[in-house]
Computed example of a mutant assay.
Amino acid sequence: MKINIVFYSTFGHVYEMAEAVAEGAREVEGAEVGLYQVAETLSPEILEKMRATDSKKRFEHLPVATPETLVEADAIIFGTAARFGMMAAQMRAFLDSTGKIWSQGALIGKVGSVFTSTATQHGGQEAAILSFHATLLHHGMIIVGLPNSETRHSTLDEISGGSPYGASTVAGNGPDTRRPTENELEIARFQGKHVAEITKKLVGE
């Protein structure tokens, strides 16, 4: 059972969430988990001006996703920074490169799930995930979110990301801002484990 996590991260927040998702998925017996980053489309000069260069060095060792990364997996968990209530342009560019495998129906019946981050508490986390789902549906994927058995996304004790649609974090603006909280990371771990458990049932392992 192959589960690939494909993410785009600017300042490392989504990367930290992706690592937590991977931890959760690995808890399920038989799960082989891969972690892949989406190719950057911004120039090194722009990233330097954004103060994102050092943040991206944290995960520069990870392989860059290709359409084959999706085809080889039984489940794909996507993570993306949100931009104005939608996925980041880098993730959109990657998904726009999947036309060939779409025409082949290569992702039909595979499990898909999404997590995200926004700069602010009400910066469009749920909108970004829901709009991402449209692409997964066009590929014929089976969407898995977070059931209400994951009660941490309903906490009123602290500011926290997370919803029935997927894990999320409130990142702030820039590299030196709020990092994912333990509550948000636990929600991400739950999502990874839940997707792996659902996938295991579907593939019959």
Results as ranks from 00 to 15, higher is better:
Pro44Cys: 04
Ala81Gln: 08
Ser113Cys: 04
Leu47Ile: 12
Pro180Asp: 09
Glu182Trp: 03
Val21Tyr: 00
Glu68Gln: 15
Arg178Ser: 13
Gly192Leu: 01
Ser131Lys: 12
Lys57Ile: 03
Leu185Ala: 11
Arg92Ala: 14
Arg58Val: 09
Gly109Thr: 11
Ala82Thr: 15
Arg178Gln: 15
Ile5Gly: 01
Glu27Ala: 12
Lys2Thr: 12
Gly161Ser: 09
Glu158Trp: 03
Glu40Lys: 02
Thr118Ala: 14
Glu16Arg: 14
Phe84Lys: 00
Thr169Pro: 08
Val71Ile: 15
Ser154His: 13
Pro175Val: 07
Arg92Tyr: 02
Thr169Trp: 03
Thr155Val: 12
Thr116Arg: 05
Ser113His: 01
Ile46His: 12
Ala22Trp: 00
Glu29Phe: 04
His153Glu: 00
Glu27Val: 07
Ala73Cys: 10
Leu107Glu: 05
Arg58Cys: 02
Phe132Pro: 00
Gly85Ser: 09
Leu156Lys: 15
Ala128Asp: 06
Gly123Met: 01
Pro175Leu: 06
Tyr36Lys: 05
Gly79Phe: 04
Ile101Gly: 11
Lys57Asn: 11
Ser113Val: 02
Leu42Asp: 13
Ala127Arg: 07
Ser113Pro: 02
Val144Ser: 12
Ile198His: 04
Glu186His: 10
Gln37Thr: 13
Pro147Glu: 04
Ser43Lys: 07
Thr118Arg: 02
Leu202Lys: 12
Val144Asn: 02
Leu107Pro: 07
Leu62Glu: 06
Gly161Cys: 07
Lys2Trp: 06
Ser97Ala: 13
Phe78Glu: 00
Ala88Arg: 00
Thr116Lys: 01
